[in-house]
Nucleic acid binder design. Sequence first.
DNA 1: GTCGAAATAAACACTG
DNA 2: CCAGTGTTTATTTCGA
Length: 672
Amino acid sequence: MMVESASETIRSAPSGQNGVGSISGQTDGGGGGGGGAGAAGTGGSGPGRDSAAGPDSNGEMSPAELLHFQQQQALQVARQFLLQQASGLSSPGNNDSKQSASSVQVPVSVAMMSPQMLTPQQMQQILSPPQLQALLQQQQALMLQQLQEYYKKQQEQLHLQLLTQQQAGKQQPKEALGNKQLAFQQQLLQMQQLQQQHLLNLQRQGLVSLQPGQASGPLQTLPQAVCPTDLPQLWKGEGAPGQPAEDSVKQEGLDLTGSATTATSFAAPPKVSPSLSHHTLPNGQPTVLTPRRDSSSHEETPGSHPLYGHGECKWPGCETLCEDLGQFIKHLNTEHALDDRSTAQCRVQMQVVQQLEIQLAKESERLQAMMAHLHMRPSEPKPFNQPVTVSAADSFPDGLVHPPTSAAAPVTPLRPPGLSSASLHSGGPTRRRSSDKFCSPISSELAQNHEFYKNADVRPPFTYASLIRQAILETPDRQLTLNEIYNWFTRMFAYFRRNTATWKNAVRHNLSLHKCFVRVENVKGAVWTVDEREYQKRRPPKMTGSPTLVKNMISGLSYGALNASYQAALAESSFPLLNSPGMLNPGSASSLLPLSHEDVGAPVEPLPSNGSSSPPRLSPPQYSHQVQVKEEPAEAEEDRRPGPPLGPPNPSTAGPPEDRDLEEELPGEELS
DNA sequence: GTCGAAATAAACACTG
DNA sequence: CCAGTGTTTATTTCGA
């Protein structure tokens, strides 16, 4: 009853179309049972975990140059992302981003509110085609302004810090250097990761098409994309293989040029040795620091167009070659007229920019905290003027439930990595298909956001089955009584401290329904165990074969999830790579993303060797040891399964699990 | 539109 | 009888 009403309220969420990963809404028909709430897909999400910001080096001060340099790098990269995003994924050096804001008639307020407040349909209805485009440009211009101002401040601040620090301390223990550098590199990597994630999002939505020659598919793109060296290339538009990269970089008089080159040069040497402190920028000569031609100057070169550069259309995913501006305009009007597709692309672009802003704000905040920790300077609580709309909730320390201040809050409210905004609707049985299929691995996700789920009343993005399994597998002997499962739920998730009747019923239902859960009579009663093979069976991870599944998987990866996976990966195994010269080489880098991939597709457990079989998995999962930890018991469990006591009622448990359902068992399926 | 998976609800049986 | 546990069925939603 109460539950019912809760879902009713949720139901009022505006329905979004499925196609473009809508951050919120999806329809919910109505009906008795439950109400859909929100969408799983793309919800952007916060940056990685709130907690650990990488290796917590507690060293003293590291070389000022190094820090400064690295900070600059991080900022530049981030800024570049944003600018590129704002300018429609134009190539790095191509700073056509100066929008003709003057030509925009749409009120600023509308421009700023539109993306969040209005659905694309609404926008279409409200705005005429030229208005829509103008709106976009306006928004981008504004963002640019804000961002550049922000960066300016940030960089000035950094510079200040640098100066003060230089006066203060000179020599730093070498050993501290590595850690700090590592932390900053991680920071940088995260930003790059973010960038890449957006690319993926675009690809997923078909808004950015990969050129045939470039990559045969997202999977192939990922690993190389991870390599920072390749990032600029990626952002060049993941296509136009023949297009010389220099072109874009050579653009004259564009402040981005500097940053682009610098960022590139930073990434370019495949090896970033820990001792790169000697690197350029002698004590922070901010060659790129000053946004020379910043936002305010919207000078519009006659004969140029923000979406036109280097003879090609810069519309995301287009890259059609146009000889001159006139041709381009024609192309623009024909190919990118206001239609569903273009609208969707615009919307995606908006979201991309917004998400990047949010992410950037968070990362910057983290950077501040890191710097503060390194005694570079007592960081102000709010170092920057929040040029971007980052709600305070974003920085919530540890999952205290922040009731969404307003449902229409422009920014995604607090949300753990990978959690869709849908999950934020606390309360009624939001019928969110918290599918584990394309959400991040439950174990790592849980590990990452343990505190969050514990305290925040949000629904965990996992199925009951996966949660139950997790609960069981977390125990030493891989078995739990029903009550213990209940307890695990309530202990781990604030969400399950309410509506107990509902979810407990669901738990029981799942236990009974799924063959992967085996009831075993025990001395202390009945306990439940997990039959891993059955569990594998019930969710065929054909991610390799099906592009759609890959799509899903990626969509499930809001950056948070990806970030989480990525960080987990770092923590798990690859972290040392950050320190190693090879850190940036494709090999090591590639090992990160596929990992996330795999995570997503098949959470903790390895994919059935036969089913998947496919190549796209590029590198052996670094999680392997973790996997084995989880999996090994699974097969041991079968032996151990106390078949005896349970008599007639449960022949299934006694016998091989296969008989419960499918017979012929894939022998190689269980982790070999 | 269909189908499968998942969530939800509910009825029912069994047991202590 | 009741509460907890377990099973089963029905309905709804969603994504493929």
